[in-house]
Amino acid sequence: MSYEKDPRVDDYIDKLPDWQREVCHRVRDIAHAADPEVVETIKRTVQPYFVLDGNVCALLAAKDHVNVFLYDGGIVPDPDGIVTAGHQNKTGRTIAYYEGEPINAPALTRYLQRIIANNRAGGWRKIKAAQGL
């Protein structure tokens, strides 16, 4: 897959241990595959973010896992059970990937596509307000 890479995202990923680099590259590819208009950038000084009409997701490598922050306003369904934390969070959720754990690419792609669709519809805040949530 071909997409425009931000060299600052490469710098972030390149400093990680091998297995975390693999996770980050895979999630990066999935984010871009979810919609070809996704753009990557750096926010909060060092964190890779993937954006399209608003935040879609972000990466944060921790000591023993990689967090993928999902900016969904807590409204995107998770029928595949890929979300690992933040189920009651009002602004976003998290998927933590540990060394050797598989990434359910089809489920993550669908999840990110739903966030993107919500962003294009005005964002989760507008959607929640329209739903009276």
Rank of each mutant, 00 (worst) to 15 (best):
R44V: 09
V66A: 09
H87S: 11
R93A: 09
A61Y: 02
V9N: 02
E40D: 15
M1S: 14
Q47V: 12
A107K: 05
L112F: 14
A58K: 01
R26F: 00
R28I: 00
V27C: 00
R26C: 06
A117T: 10
Y49M: 11
A34Q: 04
I115W: 01
P36T: 11
N89Y: 09
A130I: 11
T91E: 13
I42K: 02
A61H: 07
Q47D: 14
N104T: 01
E101I: 05
R120F: 08
A105R: 08
L16S: 08
E40N: 02
T109M: 04
G86F: 04
V9S: 00
A62R: 13
G74H: 07
E22S: 11
R28C: 03
S2Y: 11
N67T: 11
L60H: 12
N89P: 10
V76N: 04
S2M: 13
N89C: 09
A85H: 15
R44F: 13
R21L: 06
V76R: 02
G73H: 05
G74P: 08
I13D: 04
R114E: 15
F69T: 13
A58W: 01
V9L: 05
D10V: 13
Y98G: 11
T91F: 14
D64W: 07
Y49K: 05
D53N: 15
D72V: 07
R93L: 02
I127C: 07
P17A: 13
G54L: 06
R120P: 04
S2T: 14
G123F: 03
Y97N: 02
D64E: 15
N67V: 08
A96C: 12
A31P: 04
G54Y: 03
I127N: 06
P77K: 08
I30T: 08
P48E: 06
A117G: 11
G81I: 12
V83L: 10
Q88I: 05
G122T: 06
I95H: 00
D6N: 15
R44S: 13
V51Y: 02
Q20P: 03
P106N: 05
I115S: 01
A105F: 03
I115C: 00
D14G: 14
D35T: 01
